[in-house]
Amino acid sequence: MSKQLIISVGREFGSGGHIVAAKLAEHFGLPLLDSNILGEIAKEKHTSEEELRKYDESARNPLFSRTVNGFSNSPEEVIAQMQFDYIKGRADAGESFVVIGRCADWILRDNPGLVRVFILGDKEAKIQRTAEREGISRERAKFRMEQADKRRKYYHNTHSENKWGDSRSYDITVNSSKLGLDGTVDLLIKYIELKNA
C-alpha cells in the first residue's frame, strides 16, 4: 500500500474491539500494535517486558505522583510516554499499522493517514462475551468490565484533550453488538476503502 494508513482502534471492554482490530490488520496486511509495543521497548532498553506491562494503559494517580522539571515519578506516565514516542516514531517514519488504544487517536491526530475508530457494544453482549472469554460469572464479568472501562477512560482523558468514547473524538464509532464482529469489520473495511479512495 503506497499511501500511509494508520487505524487507531479505541474500544469498550468486552466489545470485541481487539478482535476487530486484528481482523482489520489482517485484511489490510498491516502490523498490529497493542501491548506488544512494550515487548519492543523492553528489547530496545534491555529490560524486562513483564515489569513494563504492570503499568500498561494506566494513568498516574495525582495524589501519588509529582513532576519536577518535566520528570515524573509515576511509572504509568513514563511508560505511557514511551509508548506514545514509539507509536509516533513509527508513524513519522511513514509506516502503516493498526494500533489499539494507547491514545493513538490523539497522539497521531495530525497524521493525514489516520483513521480513528471506536468500538462499543450493548452492555448485555459485553458482559456475556467477557464471562465466556474469561470463564467467570456474569457479576464478575460486569465488575471487570466497569473497572477496565473506568481505567481506560481515565487513562485516555489524562493524556488527551479528546474524550474517550465521545463520537466527536473519532471518525467512526460502531456498536459491535448490532452487526456482530464480522459485520463490524466489513463495515469498517468499506468505510476505510471509501475514505482512501
Binding site: L52, V68, F71, N73, V78, I79
Partner: peptide, 17 residues
C-alpha cells in the same frame, strides 16, 4: 526522588511506590 525514579523508569526500570 522524582528525578531518580523518573530516570530509572525512562530507561525501562520502573520503581513502584
Amino acid at each position: 526522588n522524582v528525578v531518580g525514579t523518573s530516570v530509572a523508569a525512562k530507561h525501562g526500570y520502573p520503581i513502584s511506590w
